[in-house]
Design a protein around this nucleic acid. Sequence first.
DNA 1: CTACAAGCTCAACTTAACTTGAGGTCAAGC
DNA 2: GCTTGACCTCAAGTTAAGTTGAGCTTGTAG
Lengths: 147, 147
Amino acid sequence: MAPVTELTVGQVAMRSGVAVSALHFYEARGLIRSHRTSGNQRRYGRDVLRRVAIIKVAQEVGISLAEIGEALASLPEGRTPTRDDWNLLSTAWRDGLDHKIAQLKKLRDGLTDCIGCGCMSIDKCPLRNKGDRLAREGTGARRLVAG
Amino acid sequence: MAPVTELTVGQVAMRSGVAVSALHFYEARGLIRSHRTSGNQRRYGRDVLRRVAIIKVAQEVGISLAEIGEALASLPEGRTPTRDDWNLLSTAWRDGLDHKIAQLKKLRDGLTDCIGCGCMSIDKCPLRNKGDRLAREGTGARRLVAG
DNA sequence: CTACAAGCTCAACTTAACTTGAGGTCAAGC
DNA sequence: GCTTGACCTCAAGTTAAGTTGAGCTTGTAG
């Protein structure tokens, strides 16, 4: 085990905490890359751990894989993201997070008001008519809070 | 049109702002009820408007239909939810919202820290090891932030 | 009384993010 | 040298929350 540089899927899975199937999935989605051994098995560079970590953090923050993919696409391929790369991403995502927090607060405050009013008149309820609802466009399933 | 008490699906859809198909769906899920005319068409009592309004608010707050269903199940069937009923629900949901906001803040603050650190050591990153991640249990698809 | 809008049911499709399973290969221990 | 565990691919299943469409019935306005 001289070259510690290369990792198998199983190793990445163990170290990153995501399932092997998820890693396959991320790769199919273009979020991570690998090269193959002569026996067609995946081998990952160490940068994959950083990338997977970023993916997980972003997901917890409510960012979709599609968005994460776009962001990661802007990073240099096959290289461990640098401090600057990460700064760019995290700053952008932090802004999104701030926005989400603000929206949730608005909703919470609306609920607080409603607790007193009993919402006897639905048409006047601030929650029902705030005109600034969470993004819910498009067809099909929609994310719940993230958006 | 003497008895204004009964509403058709179309009317409920128009007044509530949700699609007819969604109303069918909610009914199949047990979130709302209707009785049928001799011609097998749905007729709704006025309480359905209140219920649908509650459903929509709850959804915007990030509560799943399943959870909403449980909450609504605790309300008296076929009656317009009273002020007290609403208070119970909105208070509980507001607490949930507070919790979510707190979690998001934690994440945001974690990100803020990372912006400085560049997350050069993933194992020490506060985001990667906070041991208090958003709920992500079970198999299959998972909600992103709501939980 | 006959269109035509509105309803009804039921099945299939949608998106996101994976998981599960089937069927086959590769590598390392005994 | 063969068995066992890790891999591989590809297809299909899962959940949430509905939407879309087909095929058929109702109800209402002219």
